[in-house]
């Protein structure tokens, strides 16, 4: 579904990703792991079209989208939930969700609105409240709900557990798994290695702009090297 090959990208003259290969197939949860600053968000921003890669190919559903506009990438069903949520603070929860279907899924907006508020009853309670007044966890729900409004075929979640309480992190991962069971392909970009590996099918570990390790999630979870560097075991 998503196939990244030889991706080189960065900001200005600084190259951060130095040839990354990564694949997400239909129905999969793929975890992209790595500590702060290894280039996870750079990868997201290039896949979503916010930046133009230096080199390499990003193919989504058979179309090369490297250098395409964010608008056309959203149109094709690849939706990113960015790090830091990026909800519209001055708009109500409802308006945030409605804008989720600004470019895609507009025809079924009402049905999707009902579906999203079923998944997140909390958002329904806060429907007319400004998004800026929500708690961090609620904003994360809103950001995911907004993405769901666009009927994604592939959902990229950038650090969905960041800044959430341990209990909420559990809930969030359970929810991600549920979305996947319902058929959605997910690229999960996380620093939280243990919980990500628990729900992912496959995983990639990014270090210094290259993929240092990849494979089925269970194998990686058992890898002594990974356990030493990321789990302190």
């Amino acid at each position: 579904m998503l196939e990244i090959s030889g991706l080189r990208a960065g900001y200005g003259a600084v190259e951060i990703l130095r040839g990354v290969d990564l694949r997400v197939d239909a129905g999969e949860i793929v975890a992209l792991l790595g500590s702060n600053g290894v280039g996870k968000s750079t990868l997201n921003n290039n896949v979503s079209g916010l930046y133009v890669p230096f080199a390499g190919r990003i193919v989504f559903q058979g179309r090369d989208i490297s250098g395409a506009t964010p608008r056309s990438i959203v149109e094709s069903g690849l939706i990113q939930v960015p790090e830091g949520r990026r909800v519209f603070p001055n708009l109500s929860v409802r308006e945030n969700l409605e804008l989720g279907s600004y470019r895609r899924g507009r025809a079924r907006r009402a049905a999707n609105l009902a579906r999203v508020t079923d998944i997140f009853p909390r958002l329904k309670e806060r429907f007319t409240q400004k998004a800026g007044t929500l708690s961090g966890g609620e904003q994360q729900m809103l950001a995911i709900g907004r993405a769901m409004m666009a009927e994604p075929t592939l959902l990229i979640l950038d650090e969905p557990s960041l800044g959430l309480s341990p209990l909420l992190v559990e809930t969030m991962f359970a929810l991600i798994q549920k979305l996947n069971v319902d058929g959605l392909a997910i690229l999960l970009v996380e620093q939280n290695v243990v919980q990500s590996l628990a729900i992912a099918h496959r995983a990639y570990v990014l270090e210094n702009g290259v993929v240092a390790m990849s494979g089925p999630a269970q194998d990686l979870a058992a890898d002594p090297g990974l356990r030493r560097s990321y789990l302190g075991l």
């Binding site: 608008r71 990113q80 519209f88 603070p89 001055n90 308006e95 804008l99 600004y102 895609r104």
Partner: peptide, 22 residues
């Protein structure tokens, strides 16, 4: 929708791009 998009862009440009707002 265009009115909402204008208000959204006023406060959160990156978020706006990610929902496909030009």
């Amino acid at each position: 929708d265009t009115g909402k998009a204008i208000r959204a862009v006023a406060k959160e440009r990156q978020g706006a791009r990610l929902v496909g707002i030009d």
